[in-house]
Amino acid sequence: MKPEKHSSPPPVAGPSKTSSSDGIPAYKTRLILSGHSKSISSIKFSPDGKMLASAAADKVVKLWNTETGEILNTLEGHTEGISDIAWSPDGEFLASASDDKTIRLWSLEMMETVNILKGHTNFVFCVNFSPKSNLLVSGGFDETVRIWDVARGRTLKTLPAHSDPVTAVTFNHDGTLIASCAMDGLIRIWDAESGQCLKTLADDDNPICSHIKFTPNSRFILASTQDSTIRLWNTQTSRCVKTYTGHANRTYCLFTDFAPGAKYIVSGSEDAKIYIWDLQTRTIAQVLEGHRDVVIAVASHPTKHMLASASMEKDMTIRLWIDANSAT
C-alpha cells in the first residue's frame, strides 16, 4: 500500500466556479491498497463508509480502513475462492459467497464466522442482504436463487430462477422485491414474500447479464451485459430507458454502480479503465486510468465522493479515488 502523489489535499482542477454538487467528476487516486494474493472479485463499502471489504480468489476477505488504507482484518475460513461479499445494512454482518458452495456469515463485532449457510449445490456467485438485515439472497452456478433466514442460517425458499448460472441477485429498497440476473441473459423480478416471478426483462439478443442494481427508488434496474453495454430498465414498463456504452465488457461479470451523488453511473472495464457516465445524458464524464488489468469491481462510498475499484490477476490492487471537484 502506497499513497500516490495526490494523497494530500488535491489541487482543484478546472474552473473554481464549479460548485461541488453539479461539477463534472474529477476522480483522482488517493490510495492504492494491496494485500490479496489472487484476483480480487468483489469490493463493498460498509454502510457507514469507514471500512471497505474485499474478497478474492485467494479465499480470504479483507477489511480496509478507507481513511488510512490499513488492513484492519483478514477473515479466513472459506476453502475455495470467493466471488462476492455483502454488508448487512445494519453494519453487523458480512456475507461471503464462495466456490466451496457455502456462504459464510461473519460477525463484525467478533470478526469471526457466526454461521455457514449450506444448500447451494454448486459455486455460490452472488449474495445480498435485505434492508432489514434479516434475510439474505444468494445465487449461484446451480441456477437457483435462495432466500435465507440470517438469524437461523436456514434456507427459507429456493427459487428455480434461471437456466444458467445466476450472476447477481438483490433486494429493492423496501425489501418487497428481489431481482436476479443470469448468464441466460434474463433479468427476473420476484415477489420477496411469495417467491413468485412478477416479470422478466429481456433484450432481443440475450447477452449474458453481468450485474444488476436497483435505483434508490426501485423504479429502474441498472444492468450490465457482456455486449459492452449498461442499460437502465424501467421495471414497470419493462422498457430500456437508457444505454451506456464505451467500455469493454465481453468476458467477465463486471460490477456497476451509481456514483456518489446518484447523478453518474460507474463501471469497470476490461481495458483496465473505469468509466463514469452522466446518468441523464449518457455521455462519458470521466475515464479513470491506473489499473493494469481488468477492473472487475467498483463501489461507491455511501456518503462521500469516493470510489473504490479492484483489478484482476496482473494487478491485484484496490484503488480508492476521490472527486477533486467535490468539497468533501
Binding site: S88, P89, D90, E92, F93, L105, S107, T113, V114, N115, I116, K118, K132, S133, N134, V150, A151, R152, G153
Partner: peptide, 14 residues
C-alpha cells in the same frame, strides 16, 4: 431504529 438480528448459537456444522 433497527431490530438487531441475533444469530442463534446452535448451528450445526460449526
Amino acid at each position: 431504529w433497527r431490530m438487531k438480528v441475533m444469530v442463534e448459537e446452535d448451528v450445526d456444522g460449526m
